[in-house]
Design a binder for these strands. Structure first.
Length: 109
DNA sequence: CTTTTGACGCGTA
DNA sequence: CTACGCGCCAAAA
């Protein structure tokens, strides 16, 4: 039995749901914690996320601490607004210091 | 069926 | 710092 084809996505969403307010995690970090996905999959899973979900998708950024640019749509603009609403402001280079604001967890191997 | 495309990351040059 | 290639894998074309 293969259960749900989106089990991996559910796992990804579950992990992201645990990112505390005011903290950010990277795509690669989420992938490593899940142990069954890659950074690109995490981005793809978030892209498939419906609007108005409870998943704090805006707390996921790339390894440079930057908000990943979208090909289409302006979702990254909203992401910046949501992060600033939590007190996270990118520096003049558009980066958030992961050393300070990064989500720390012991689950990464 | 095959090819392209991406909210990524890492190694090289 | 920039530029490029490649592995990754699901979804769309």
């Amino acid at each position: 039995m293969k259960s749900h084809p989106s089990q991996t996505y559910k796992e990804i969403y579950h992990i992201i749901s645990r990112i505390p307010e005011g903290r950010v995690a990277t795509y690669g970090q989420i992938a490593r914690i899940s142990g069954r996905s890659t950074a690109r999959q995490v981005g793809y899973a978030l892209n498939a996320l419906p609007d108005g979900s409870d998943i704090p998708w805006h707390r996921v950024i790339n390894r440079h601490g930057m908000i990943s640019p979208r090909k289409n749509s302006d979702g990254h603009l909203l992401q910046k607004i949501l992060l600033e609403a939590e007190g996270l402001y990118p520096d003049e280079k558009g980066r958030i210091d992961l050393n300070i604001n990064g989500w720390r967890t012991t689950e990464e191997l």
